[in-house]
Amino acid sequence: MSLLELQDVTASYGQGRVLHGISLSLAEHGATGILGANGAGKTTTLRAISGTVRTTGRILFDGRDISGLGPDRTARLGIAHVPEGRGTMAQLTVRDNLLVGAYQRRDRRQIATDVDYCLDLFPQLQARTGSPAAALSGGEQQMLAVARAFMAKPRLMLLDEASLGLAPSTARTVYDAIRRLRSETGLSMLVVEQNAVLAFSLVDDVTVLETGRVTVEGTASELMGMDSVRRAYLGG
């Protein structure tokens, strides 16, 4: 059984419908990338899953229909959404941000171990644990956002444009760490990314969205073999 399954999901902001009935599924421990142009509905797909936009259709997580649950409830079920724009708590310190991520957990000792793991995963944060998140560089904030999501010990991580606004080398550093996180923890991931090269380096499967509909899906290597995908997303 798949961990996450979207069945004919639509989503709208007010009167404007953004998703026109998309279906996709993600296996436990799997990682799927969502590609598409601006406005294709990538971010909205993630928001539909975490419950921050109004939807119709069925969204099954671990066999349970979670559509209509708010973001705090989906988070407690094990879905960690790293939103576009990072969404760190600006005035809270790096350490406090991580502890907020672990808010729903009771296993105090393991939380301390996981904080250490995050600092090992993102060594750039080690010297900054006492600084407010707002004082971090863009790359460090993105690392903190991923780390905070991981602190919830989720089963599924939704990653939205983790490379946005970062220098290419910084974006690579962030993705290297996310790849390590995936291989060491087996965390399932749904990854929205404009930078297809980075996305392909992380995921097994890819879904392409165009104006709110799924147009292509397959394994990463299948899609890399398609001329249309290479032209559109990989620069030839």
């Binding site: 975490s50 921050t52 708010g70 973001p71 705090d72 988070a75 407690r76 960690a80 959404h81 939103p83 969404g87 760190t88 708590m89 600006a90 005035q91 809270l92 406090d96 502890l99 907020v100 991520g101 808010y103 729903q104 905070r148 999501a149 919830a152």
Partner: peptide, 24 residues
Amino acid sequence: TKLGLAMRAVADNPSSAALSGLPV
């Protein structure tokens, strides 16, 4: 306290706090 941390987080960024499972 955990409650205090949660209250600070909600004041700072309610939407992110909700994404971390806080009952905002």
